[in-house]
Amino acid sequence: MIPQLLDGTLVLVVVALAWRALNDRDLFRGVIEFIALGLLLAMAWLRLRAPDLALAEAAVGSGLTGALILSALVRMRRREQAAAGQPAGVATGPWAKDRAKNFSRVLLGALSVAMLGTLAWAALSLPAKARGLTAEALARLPDSGVTNPVTAVLLNFRAYDTLLEIGVLLLAIVGVWALRRGEWPAADLRERPLLLSLLRWVLPLLAVGAGYLLWIGASAPGGAFQGGALLAGALVLALLSGLGRRLLRRGRLVRTGLTIGVLVFGVAGAVALGWTGGLLQYPTGQAGAWILVIEAAALVSIGLTLGLLYLGGRPGEK
């Protein structure tokens, strides 16, 4: 009884919070509700027995996405205020100019409800016991080089997805850098001695934690993405406090760090192709080592990419 009650409450709160986050009159409150939604989703992932994802969601889905949106909000607010009392015009998107608002709202609401009904009808018609690929994955697990099934899928069975995904990460940062110059948070550590001493402890600890997550990912929840997210958190902290400035002035070093994941992964794929005749097909018995090397390079790129996304543009001082 109690588990059902817990699940029911969690689901209801998640759905209600999603509605509030997107339709709250106060945008700032909406963003906070959105971040809270991410944390609750992490709990939902735990209830669905997906601890790998709970880690990723808490760090990336809620934490980093929330920080991104929050800092964008602050930037936009500042600009709206600078635009002197015409917030209504500034805050609108490209489609908002002439819309018969209420009518379309009702229409779209009805459409969305109909869509939800159809989706529910289809989803509930699915077989109650799915076949899934659990059996296949577990049968091949001993050959995969790792013992955590999710890592095995990510870096061996479906490693090609992950290669393209690392490509997406790099593409995102290239796209963002092409768009705009990032803004440095104006922080002066000298006025905040407590923060400085905390960072002295926490930043190395986060870096060690990222390495630990990477290592443990072979056998338990964790891996390059979770570790990368932690590294990204450390980088955001460093950027916020102004400590990351010196690092980011070294353009080529940063760019190399951003691309090393794609490069190592791609070169490993090509070498494996020459060795075994299959793209990303690791030589027998060596899969574990190959995965570790690829993940280590990916960890650096993921951490740097996610952390630098926070800057909202390419580094470079005014």
Binding site: L48, R49, G132, L133, T134
Partner: peptide, 8 residues
């Protein structure tokens, strides 16, 4: 255990 493929 839950299907690891959708998890990935």
């Amino acid at each position: 255990m839950p299907d690891p493929v959708p998890h990935a």
